[in-house]
Design a protein around this nucleic acid. Structure first.
Lengths: 154, 154
DNA sequence: CCATGAAACTTTAAGCTTGAAATAATTGCC
DNA sequence: GGCAATTATTTCAAGCTTAAAGTTTCATGG
């Protein structure tokens, strides 16, 4: 998903855009993953799950997590399993619907995440430092409109 | 890597941008992966490797592939192994340096890739259809300048 | 020569990822 | 109530991914 269009013609501009988009996010992602590993001995998927839970102190269902993070259900199971075994997250069985459980950050998980998130934010600021604030806002706007169009497709 | 900034302040615009960028590429990537699987029974990493080789009929070294695709060396080994076992790619031992081998598409691999690439391009056109050609070019320009700044960092 | 180190690649262990199949619990319809 | 369909989740197999360690080959200074 990284190679380029081989000729010119209609539709090539969008293909080019897609390739650039993918290369940019892979580049940044690789850098962030490496730093997360080195500085905090953690991984991107763990960070993602914890970030989602941090925003929802009341907890999230497994299916909420997988929908929000855009990954499969089975995937979340494994990541949460590991976080639970490290004491960063809990699965609370619910009285109402016994198929589901509320996943929440523990006290420790919450503290741990806050520290990582601060570093993460400053890394992103650094890595995207060459994009001006203004440009960042315009780009974000375009991507936002892409998102809403996407969600509204049949 | 998908949750959002939790407050406002300096650097938040870049964090927002990063999150949008990541969500957009994950969304498109998931859709492309699914179609590649359904329509051609293949995967994105296989497609990526074949795309790189298609651009270089003379062949590529394993290290060229991993550098170009932004993935680790060991990763490429496995993907190429599978492509070789399916007859889509060959590893030609070289006379000069026996540590290396030239990886090339076979005739079959080349034909197979051409068909997939055509579908792939039209899918990208469709998925990014809501981005105007003009906007696509501007976005590409911004990402290009990000790339060159990135490559020029210390 | 040839030993030492660098380079190209593969192997390995651990974890991530998907899609599909399996389990378990709930809902709805008669 | 009871049974079919649906929903939430886990399990599974296969493949992707990385970083680190291991192997083979090459280059080169003594």
């Amino acid at each position: 998903m990284v190679a380029g269009p081989t000729s010119t013609g209609p539709g090539k501009d969008r293909l080019r855009l897609w390739i650039r988009l993918l290369r940019a996010s892979r580049t940044i992602e690789a850098e962030l993953r490496e730093r997360l590993k080195k500085e905090f001995d953690t991984t991107l998927p763990r960070f993602d799950v914890m970030a989602a839970l941090y925003r929802s102190p009341e907890g999230m269902l497994m299916s909420d997590l997988s929908r929000f993070l855009l990954v499969s259900n089975g995937n979340v199971t494994g990541i949460v399993d590991r976080l639970v075994s490290e004491g960063l997250v809990t699965r609370a069985r619910r009285n109402g619907d016994r198929r589901t459980s509320m996943v929440r950050l523990t006290e420790e998980g919450s503290k741990s995440f806050a520290a990582i998130a601060a570093a993460h934010e400053s890394w992103v600021g650094e890595l995207l430092g060459t994009v001006s604030e203004d440009e960042a806002r315009r780009l974000t706007g375009m991507l936002k409109s892409f998102r809403s169009n996407w969600e509204g497709r049949e």
